[in-house]
């Protein structure tokens, strides 16, 4: 009897997954997005290894070969130091993607904690936390991130902290709303009735049930986080060269336009394709995981 019940439950879950996957497959754009993200993840893992000129990634220069136009040896051309642009763009993938992921991860963890505390406790805790996040939402996030990054000094970690500090309020508002709704559900009342502590109710019962809108927001935010990282690099307060970062590459290449356009166009295109992929995938995931947003 119990066994049958368990197997039913398992097959129901498998069925739900199968349906979600079917819906996802139905949308051609989501599949394209998934393929693009897979490519980006591939280059995140192997970009630095597969780069045709690894010595250029480490800061090596080839001054006899400056600004050569795209050719078979250098499909994306070479830059002002004679470095292979393709290698730099490939090696830039892990920098941007890991920074973007770290921003979204730290921002969502902070936001989930703040939002869950506010929504679960209510009262003055809710008031204080939510007024504070509204205040943070009023501040221009890019200028906030720039100011913090400049004050902390250049560097990969500082840049991530600076952007994440401007990133959490969106999650806090989302999670608070979801927690407020979930708090009134029957399963929460049931958990309370059998004597579960508030801590257990929040973390074991409520949070696992509101995880899908958070995941959807994370996947939609991933592209914007990569954009913000590149924006700080472009302004000149992010990662410093020789760390290969797309935004920084673009800002240097800017002064060599229009004659040596390839030094600017290819890092920019890489940025665009990565963000495009994450946004398409995020849209697809939202359609699958969030029934309210389905068209």
């Amino acid at each position: 009897m119990i066994e049958r019940h368990l197997s039913n439950k398992r097959s129901a879950r498998a069925e739900a997954l199968r349906r979600a996957f079917y819906r996802f497959r139905q949308s051609r754009l989501s599949l394209i997005g998934a393929a693009m993200v897979a490519t980006v993840v591939f280059f995140t893992l192997f970009g630095a290894v597969l780069a045709p000129f690894p010595e250029h990634v480490d800061g090596g220069v080839d001054t006899s070969n400056r600004f050569s136009a795209p050719s078979l040896a250098h499909p994306f051309g070479t830059n002002e130091l004679g470095q292979d642009v393709l290698s730099l763009v490939m090696a830039g993938t892990p920098v941007s993607v890991s920074a973007g992921f770290a921003v979204v991860f730290i921002g969502s963890v902070l936001g989930v904690i703040v939002g869950a505390l506010a929504g679960f406790n209510g009262g003055w805790i809710d008031d204080v936390l939510m007024r504070f996040s509204d205040l943070m939402l009023t501040l221009p996030s890019l200028i906030l991130a720039m100011a913090v990054a400049a004050a902390l000094g250049p560097g990969f970690g500082n840049m991530i902290i600076a952007i994440a500090l401007a990133w959490w309020p969106g999650y806090a508002r989302l999670v608070r709303g979801e927690v407020l709704q979930a708090r009134e559900e029957v399963y929460v009342a049931a958990a309370r009735a059998i004597g579960a502590s508030p801590f257990r109710v929040l973390f074991r019962h409520i949070l696992p049930n509101i995880v899908s809108p958070v995941i959807v927001k994370m996947s939609l935010d991933m592209g914007f986080a990569i954009l913000t990282v590149a924006a700080l690099g472009f302004i000149g307060i992010g990662v410093r060269p020789p760390t290969p970062e797309w935004g920084t590459q673009l800002s240097i290449a800017r002064s060599y336009m229009p004659d040596f356009w390839w030094t600017a166009v290819f890092p920019g295109l890489a940025m665009f394709m990565a963000v495009f992929g994450f946004n398409l995938l995020g849209d697809g995931l939202r359609d699958v995981l969030d029934p309210r947003a389905r068209r």
Binding site: G223, L227, G247, L250, V275, D283
Partner: peptide, 14 residues
């Protein structure tokens, strides 16, 4: 989706 994904500064440069 493409427009949202386009970095404004890259579009500006283009």
């Amino acid at each position: 989706v493409a427009a949202i994904s386009m970095p404004r500064f890259f579009l500006g440069l283009l």
